[in-house]
Nucleic acid binder design. Structure first.
Lengths: 189, 189, 189, 189
DNA sequence: CATGAATGAGACTTCATTCAT
DNA sequence: TATGAATGAAGTCTCATTCAT
C-alpha cells in the first residue's frame, strides 16, 4: 500500500529554498545571483519567478520557515513577567533555536548592509532586537545593561562564530549558554 | 620651522577616502557605487581611478590608515608572553583603538559576505582573528575558551552595536571593558 | 419555443473578452499582460489559452464581435453608387456604429504602433481606411479631399476624444455629425 | 584656416536622438528596444546610458528639442486676449510648427497607451490639450465647441495622417489650414 | 474545462573599469 | 591632475507561450 503517491505537487519550491540558503550562506545574498541558484538546480531563472515573486521573496520564505521558532519564543517572552527566570528561559530557548536557525542569522549577520534597504532585512533584524529587549526588560544601571547585552551577544555569536574553538558543537553550545547565564545572573544581581 | 614643505599631497585623495568611508558605513561597500562617491565629491569616476587603482583599493587605504593602531597592538601582543596581564592590556588597548576604528570594523561586520572574496576582506578579518587568538593564547578547557571569546566579543560588539543602551559613550566603553575584564579573569581563573 | 438549447457555449470565453477589452482600453494592448487578464477573472493564464490561441486572438475576437456593424456598413457602401446621399448615409451610420464600437477604435487609436506588426492591427486599420475611401470616392481637387478627410476625422475623433466638451453624449454626437455633414456638403459642393 | 576643429565634444548624443526618433516613429516607442538603437549606431547599450538616464529620457530630450516651438506658441497664446484673430494665428502657427514637429506628435499619437504611464507622455499630451483649450477659450454653445475641436483636429491630423491624399505637402498643408480656419470662423460666428 | 509548472527570449538598467586627451 | 566617452559583463525581472495531467 501507500506507495509514493504522485510527486506532481512539485518539490521545486523547496529545492529552490535549499539551494538559495546554501548559496546565501556561502557566497552572500547580494553576491548570489538568480542565475546561480537556477543553474544549481538545473532550471531556468524564469522557473524561480514562478515560485517566488522576487529574489527578496526567497529570503523572506526562508525567514518565515526557519525563523518561526524564534517568533514563537518572542511571543512567549512577551506573555510573561520579566523575571530572572523568564530571562534565563529566553536565553536557554534562544540557544536551542539557533541550532537550526544559525544559517539564517548567519546570512543576516554577514549581509546587513545589503539587507538594510530590504523589507525582509528589517523583519529579520527586528526579531533579534526584540529578543534583546526582552532580556534587558526595563533598563537598570548601565553596568547591568551591558551585562544583559553581553549575555545575548554571547549566545548569538556563540552560535555563529565560535567554530574556531572546536570540540563538540552541542558541548560548546552548553558552555556558551552557561557563560551567558552567569552574565545574566550578575546583571540581575 | 618646518612649515609644510611637502608637495601638498593632493587633498583629493583624502577627500575620496572620507566620502567613501561615510558611504561604505551607511550604504554598505557593495551598495556604494563609484558613481556615488564621485558625485558626492563633485568629481568624475575617472578621477577616482587617478588616485586609486580599484574600488577595493580605496577600502584598503582606509584599512591601512584607520587600522594601523590595531596592527601595532597585535605586534605588541605578539612580542609579549601570554600572561593574564598581557591579555588585560590587549583588551584595554583594543577597546581604546575601537573608538576611532569603529567605522572600519562596522564596514567589515556588515559586509562580510561582500568582502569575503576580496583580498582586503581577508586582511581586515585577519586582524580581528589574530587579536582573538592572542587573547585565547594556547587553548585551555572549553569553558575557558568560551569566556575568552565572549570577552573579545563583548569589547568588539560593545563598540559597534550597543548604542541602544544610550548614555555617555565613553562611560559605556568603560563599563563594557569592565565586563570583558571580568570574563577574562574568570577564563584565566 | 426555442429556449436556449445550445450547449451553453462557455461563458468564460465572453468573460475573457470583457476583461480584455476593459484592460486593453485602460492600460493599452501591449501593456496588458495575460497574467493581468487571468488574475482579473480569477483563472490561470493557461485557461486563456484554452479559449484563445494567442493574445492577438483575443483582440481579433473583439474586433469581429464589435466591429461587425462597421464591416456591414462598408459592404453597404460598396454596393451603392458614390453619390452625395450615399456619403451622407455613411457618415450618419458610422457615427451611430461608433457609439458601441468606440472602445475598440480607442484601442486601435492608442496602440497603433503596437498593433502595426500584428495581423489584427492591419485588419482593424483597413476598416477605417476603407470607410474613408468610400467617402472620398474618386478624388477631386485637393480642397475637396481635405474636406472629406476632415469630415471623417471629425466623426471618428468626435466619438473618441471630444469628452472634454462635456454635455450629453448623444447630443454631442449629433452636433459632431452635423459639422461633419456640413464639411461633406462643402466638399461635394 | 578654420579647419574642422577638434570633434571631441562627441556628437553621439545627437546621433542617438536621431536614431531613436527614426525608430520610435517607425516601430513605436515600446517596440523599440535600446539594443536596436545602440546597434543602429554601432555603440553599446551602456553608451546610451552615458548620455541619457533612461529610455524615457531620450524621448524627453526629443520632446524638449522638437516641441519647443509649440511651447513658445502656447506661451504666446496665453499672453493674448482670446480674440478670433488670436485663434486664427494659433491655428496658422500651429500648422507651421507641425511641419517639423510631426514625427514627435506621430509618436505621441501612435503610442498613447504606452506613454500614458510615463511622465513624458503626460507632458507631451498636455501641450496638445492646452493648445486646444486656447482655441476653445471659454466655451460657448456645444455647436461652437465642436467646431473649435474639429478645427484643431483638422490641423493636427491633417499634418499627421492625410498623406493618403497625395500632392505637394506644403500645398496640402495650406488647404488643411484653410478648412480649419473656415471651421473656426463658423464656430465663432 | 482548466491548472501547475516551466521555458526561452528579451527588456531595462547598473557597475567597475579603461583610455585618449 | 582630471575628464568625457565608452565598454563588457552581469543583474533582476516580465512576458507570451507550451504541455502533461
Amino acid at each position: 500500500m501507500a506507495n509514493i503517491p504522485q510527486t506532481r505537487r512539485s518539490d521545486t519550491r523547496e529545492r529552490i529554498q535549499e539551494a538559495a540558503l546554501e548559496l546565501f550562506v556561502h557566497r552572500g545574498y547580494e553576491k548570489t545571483s538568480l542565475r546561480e541558484i537556477a543553474e544549481e538546480l538545473g532550471v531556468t531563472k524564469a522557473a524561480l519567478y514562478y515560485h517566488f515573486k522576487t529574489k527578496e521573496d526567497i529570503l523572506a520564505a526562508l525567514s518565515a520557515d526557519i525563523g518561526a521558532p524564534v517568533d514563537a519564543l518572542i511571543a512567549w517572552g512577551e506573555s510573561r513577567p520579566p523575571t530572572l527566570e523568564t530571562k534565563r528561559e529566553l536565553l536557554r530557548r534562544y540557544s536551542e533555536s539557533l541550532v537550526k536557525a544559525a544559517p539564517l542569522y548567519h546570512i543576516l549577520q554577514e549581509n546587513q548592509a545589503s539587507l538594510r534597504s530590504l523589507g525582509i532585512g528589517v523583519t529579520l533584524r527586528r526579531r533579534v532586537v526584540r529578543l534583546s529587549e526582552l532580556v534587558h526588560a526595563g533598563g537598570g544601571p548601565m553596568r547591568s545593561q551591558v551585562r544583559y547585552s553581553s549575555a545575548v551577544l554571547t549566545v548569538h555569536f556563540g552560535a555563529l562564530t565560535m567554530d574556531a574553538i572546536g570540540g563538540d558543537p552541542e558541548e560548546r553550545r552548553l558552555a556558551v549558554l552557561e557563560v551567558a547565564l552567569e552574565l545574566l545572573e550578575s546583571a540581575a544581581g
